[in-house]
Design a protein around this nucleic acid. Structure first.
Lengths: 257, 257
DNA sequence: CAGTGGTCTAGACCACTCA
DNA sequence: GAGTGGTCTAGACCACTGT
C-alpha cells in the first residue's frame, strides 16, 4: 500500500514536512523549522535540510524568505475569467469593466489600477494584430494592474490605434466612466462583434516574479486578446499576464458547424 | 549599457554559457562541458558549476541527463489548437480528428495513439460536467496520446456516458473511421452545438514529467472540454494535459451582446 | 546583533550511460 | 569500466530580517 521510504534524505525530510503541513500541524503562514534546526533534528548536513525545503518550495507548498524563514503558503482560490466577460449585457447590467464584473459575479473583492497611459511604438506582434503597418510609430498603451483581495493576480497592456483613441478619455489616465474601456470604445464607434484570444502558458520572467509577487514555481498565463468590430477590423489588442495559480479561463463557444 | 558582472559565480557561469548558446557556439543538441571540467576551467567547486547548469535547466535552455551530460535544448515550435477544431466543416473537409486536422492545416507531421478504452467510475469533476449523479458507477473512458514529430505533446482522457457509447465503436479500441470521434458522436445523435473549455496552467506532476517527457521547468496547460448538444445537454467531457511550450490555444469568439 | 536564508568549498560515495 | 550526473557532508562567509 504505502510507498517505500524514499532513498534520499532530502526527499524523505520533504515528504515528512509535507505530511505535517497537510495534516494541519503547520497551518498556512506558519513558519517551518530553520535550516539549521532541521539539520540538527534530522541529523543531516544543513545543505540537505535546505534541499528538502527547496523541494517543497518548487512544489508550491511553502515560500522561503531570505533572512526570515520558510512559511506555509496560503492556498489561493482561482478567479475564473469567463469568455462572456466582454458582453455588453454584463457590462450594462453592472456598469463595470470585464474584470470587475467577473469579480462581482463570483462575489470576490478586488480592484484594478491604471498605472500608465502613453503613446509608444507598438511591438511587432501588436501592430500585426491591429492590422497596422510595421512602420507605425505610435499607438496608445494603457497599463493596468488587477488585484484580488489585495494580491496582484494580473497585469495587462491595452493597445489602441491613435486615430481611435485621440481626443477621447481613452488617451488620458482618468476615470473611464460607466462600463469602462469597452463602453468607451463602443462610444467611439467600435463595439466588439467578435474577439480572438491567443493563450500560452510559460514560466514568469524575473520582472514578472517581482511585479506580480509570484512565488517561484508558479507559471503564468500569457493571453493576447484582439477585439474585432462588425466589419471584421481589429481595433484593440490587450496583452495579459496572469498568475496561473490565481486565474483560470473559461470559454463557452457555440460551434459553427 | 551592459549589466554589471553578477555577484555570484554560479550566475556568472550560467550567463557565460547562455551567451555562448545564443551565439551559436553551442548549437541545439550539443553537449556542454561536464560539471567536473567546468569546475576546473572556471576554478570553482563542482557544486558551483553544477548550480550554474541547474540555473540554465530551470530557464529551459538545456536538458541535463543523468549519466550522460547537459545538452542544449532544441527550440520547439508551437502547435496552435484553434477554437474551430471541433467544427463539422473542418472535419468533413479533411476526414480527420480535431488534432490531426489542426496539424494538417499547419503543415506539421504527427500522429495520435489511443492507448486505452475501458469503463471506469467517473471522477467527481467529470460526472458533474456530464450532468451525471455523483453515484454513477461507470462511464467509458478513452485515453489518447498525441505526438508532433514523434514528441509527445498532449494526453487526454475522453469520458462518454455508457448509454451513448454502448454498442458503438466508441466503446471499443479500434479505428473510429472518417471524422474520428466527433463524427461518431454525431452518428449517435449528438452533434456539438456548443462547448465549454476550462483552462488552467500549472506545473506538471511527476507522472506527467515521465509520460510527456517534459523537461522540468516546463508548465502544462490543463484543459477540460465539455461538448454540449442542441438541447443544452453535455454528452462528452475530455480532460487534456498539454506541454505548454509545445501547444498554444487560439479561440475566436463571436461576442453575444 | 542574533538568527535567518544564500552561496560556496573540497571533498566523498552512489546511480546511470555508453562504448 | 571510465565518465557522467545525483546526493551528501561539514564546514565557511555573505546578505537579509527583525528586534
Amino acid at each position: 500500500m504505502s510507498d517505500q521510504p524514499s532513498r534520499w534524505a532530502s526527499q524523505r525530510i520533504a515528504e515528512d514536512l509535507e505530511a505535517r503541513i497537510r495534516s494541519g500541524e503547520y497551518k498556512p503562514k506558519a513558519r517551518l523549522p530553520s535550516e539549521r534546526s532541521l539539520a540538527a533534528s534530522e541529523r543531516v548536513a544543513r545543505n540537505t535540510a535546505r534541499a528538502a525545503l527547496e523541494l517543497l518550495e518548487r512544489r508550491g507548498l511553502i515560500d522561503i524568505v531570505h533572512g526570515s524563514g520558510a512559511f506555509v503558503r496560503e492556498p489561493v482560490s482561482l478567479i475564473r475569467l469567463g469568455g462572456q466577460r466582454y458582453s455588453r449585457a454584463l457590462r450594462e447590467e453592472t456598469g463595470l469593466s470585464p474584470f470587475r464584473a467577473e469579480l462581482l459575479k463570483q462575489n470576490r473583492k478586488g480592484h484594478s489600477d491604471c498605472t500608465r497611459v502613453e503613446r509608444v511604438r507598438p511591438p511587432a506582434e501588436i501592430a500585426e494584430r491591429l492590422g497596422l503597418p510595421a512602420t507605425t510609430k505610435s499607438v496608445v498603451v494603457r497599463e493596468n494592474w488587477y488585484y484580488v483581495e489585495d494580491q496582484p493576480v494580473q497585469v495587462c497592456w491595452t493597445y489602441i490605434p491613435v486615430d481611435i483613441a485621440k481626443g477621447t478619455v481613452l488617451a488620458r489616465n482618468g476615470d473611464l466612466g460607466r462600463g469602462s474601456i469597452y463602453a468607451r470604445l463602443e462610444d467611439a464607434g467600435h463595439p466588439i462583434a467578435s474577439y480572438r484570444d491567443e493563450v500560452v502558458a510559460r514560466m514568469p520572467t524575473n520582472e514578472e516574479v517581482l511585479g506580480l509577487r509570484i512565488p517561484v514555481s508558479v507559471p503564468v498565463l500569457d493571453l493576447v486578446h484582439t477585439s474585432i468590430d462588425a466589419d471584421g477590423r481589429p481595433f484593440e489588442v490587450t496583452h495579459f499576464v496572469m498568475r496561473a495559480d490565481a486565474v483560470a479561463l473559461d470559454y463557452t463557444i457555440s460551434n459553427d458547424l
